[in-house]
Amino acid sequence: MNDAPSAQGTAPLAPSASARAGFPRADYLRASAVGSDFGVVEKPITVWARLYQVTWLRKLVILVLLAVLWQVYAQRLNNSLLVPTFGATIEAMIDGFRHGNLLERALFSLKVLLMGYSLGIALAGLFSMLAITFRLGNDLLETLTSMFNPLPAIALLPLALIWFGLGNGSIIFVLVHSVLWPVALNTHSGFLSVSNTLRMVGHNYGLRGFGYVGKILIPAAFPNILAGLKIGWAFAWRTLIAAELVFGVSSGKGGLGWFILENKNQLEIASVFAGLLTIILIGLFVENCVFRVIEQRTVRRWGMQA
């Protein structure tokens, strides 16, 4: 205690060990916890707060609100040729599924879509594999994606019709085009963003070639790959419906695009809406059930995406 003030006094002149000690205080050691009056450590939250945390419930509320808005607006407009009510659309949809050919059309579209989608993914995988293995492959992919990615798939349809004729061949061709480039681009950038440490770990195990790509690069780049698959899926849908609208007329049977066009020509506007709603519902299902489940089982569980 005695030398502390003097140390303070001399500090500016000669910085010594005692000058660094600061304001003098005694040590103390706490024998036990001070008390237990801090209330409860855990407290259950209210039912509303808990319900609010359920993501799908919040989204469902939004969907219901949109449907109500639609219904109210359409009723006030009172013109079923421009905007049929939500109720009429649902009615037309149920009718289309039960008595009409809506289900058949939807399945037809999905079949073609899945064929084009999987073929596109397979090609994208091949391209990205080449790109990560060879430098020339990398240049090839980069050049091709910058050339073809901005090119709308539908612009290729006239050419496809000449090459493959009226039929699924042409549609699958444009579908592959619409899926291939975004998926390849995302996969490739995912491969490139794999950390150097993980690459070295893979090589340390003696992995090379396909084993290295399959066991290290693909899982490590999975967040990007999944994003690419989602974009590819959306692009494929758009392209498919657009393509069906263009040449569904000339081929005897078609998918949802043809269903929409057919009903428009007959001024069955409620059925047109039902066709559109079917596309939306399929999209919602795939996004929220398929992709979300994949996401939760993979990248979220692995902590690679919040």
Binding site: T197, H203, N204, A220, F222, T298
Partner: peptide, 20 residues
């Protein structure tokens, strides 16, 4: 000549474990 499992590396970086 090349990396191999007879020389295992332990890196400084925390991301050396496979997150999946």
């Amino acid at each position: 000549t090349r990396p191999g499992p007879d020389r295992m590396m332990v890196f400084q970086e925390f991301d050396q474990l496979l997150p999946w």
